[in-house]
């Protein structure tokens, strides 16, 4: 299985520190707080999807797990957070962690079975698992509220201090804090021994196992870590919107997050941060014009990225920066 990665041409050894792009993105994200105080709910939503895409990058970009069912973990996280709140556990931070753990447990249980597969069979099975969970949630109305979803939940203030407001100020900063934390964690992971092992698994499973590496165990761990972050993202959606709808488990969500990641650039973490705002802003801005017309724009962007601008926004940015510095890496990976 080959994954096209928006590689920087540098080995992980050469970039151990937090990269500039991430700092710039987070600085911009903070600026949004002051410049667009009336759009913070949307901004929080974008942050949640950036986090969701980040989780997919861990599975897909790092470990090469091609999945069309990642919404399963996002949805499990969202429902868990909703159930906890409705059951009286209103503390948000522990709620997020528990939700993430539930999603990770599901991935850990599924991993040993489905991660043996590669290519199309893997795609089909992840899709089938996703659809199964969606249909299950649809039918178990006593548990999930079915079409009506879960509502009427409230959460206590973050850290006992920051009250939730209708303007989304707390929501946004809370999401941003989780995103920064997860990004830092993922960054540490990619530059770690385990990160190298995962990229080895992505590139060549056979060679990896014949070098004495337990590929299935590594894949399962990566899948569970990825699911944890996806579950966190889902929980954040439940907490910021105080609602959990069926669509958190839908195939459309799985496709959304894949497209976000690919538009941003697969395999280097920043893709998630870059893709989410672009995708969701285009969707948001053209929505009033026609509810589905935005898809034509995204569709053309996707085809363009795949045929011309391989590596997505991150890949293009990287090339521009390198060119302005007057150097292009030698033997640069595609």
């Amino acid at each position: 299985m080959k994954i096209t990665v928006s590689s920087t041409g540098l080995s992980a050894l050469d970039r151990p520190r937090m990269p500039m792009i991430a700092l710039v993105v987070f600085a911009l994200a903070l600026a949004v707080f002051f410049v667009f105080p009336d759009r913070l709910s949307l901004a929080a939503y974008i942050g949640i999807f950036a986090l969701f895409a980040l989780s997919l990058d861990l599975a897909l970009g790092m470990a090469g797990i091609v999945t069309l069912g990642h919404a399963a973990f996002f949805g499990v996280g969202a429902y868990t957070a909703g159930w906890l709140a409705l059951a009286g556990w209103q503390e948000p931070i522990t709620g997020v962690v528990i939700s993430g753990l539930c999603a990770a447990a599901l991935a850990g249980a599924l991993g040993p079975f489905i991660l043996r597969l590669t290519g199309l069979p893997l795609v089909m099975v992840t899709l089938a698992v996703g659809v199964f969970l969606f249909e299950a949630a649809n039918k178990l109305t006593w548990l999930t509220g079915g079409d009506d979803g879960l509502y009427g939940m409230t959460f206590s203030p973050v850290l006992g201090i920051f009250e939730w407001s209708i303007y989304g100020t707390t929501d946004y900063l809370y999401v941003l804090a989780w995103l920064a934390l997860a990004f830092y964690g993922c960054h540490r992971l990619t530059t770690s021994n385990f990160g190298l092992a995962l990229r080895g698994v992505r590139e060549n499973r056979l060679r990896m196992s014949l070098l004495g590496s337990s590929v299935l165990a590594q894949l399962t761990l990566a899948y569970a870590l990825s699911a944890f972050i996806a579950g966190v993202a889902g929980a954040l959606l439940a907490q910021t919107s105080e609602f959990v709808g069926l669509e958190v488990l839908s195939v459309e969500k799985s496709i959304d997050v894949l497209v976000i990641l690919v538009l941003g650039g697969v395999g280097h973490l920043y893709g998630a941060l870059l893709g989410a705002p672009v995708y969701l802003l285009i969707k948001d801005m053209s929505k009033e014009w026609n509810p589905h017309a935005w898809m034509i724009i995204i569709g053309f962007m996707l085809v363009f990225v795949m045929l011309v601008a391989r590596g997505g926004i991150h890949g293009v940015l990287h090339k521009v920066i390198e060119r302005s510095r007057g150097k292009l890496p030698n033997g640069e990976p595609r």
């Binding site: 770690s192 021994n193 385990f194 092992a197 070098l211 590496s213």
Partner: peptide, 21 residues
């Protein structure tokens, strides 16, 4: 480096937070 890690750490390199560098 991958085979060197695999040889040193055994089947499963868990140390996800140890920087490679």
């Amino acid at each position: 480096m991958i085979p060197c890690f695999a040889k040193r750490d055994g089947a499963f390199q868990m140390n996800a937070l140890t920087a490679m560098s």
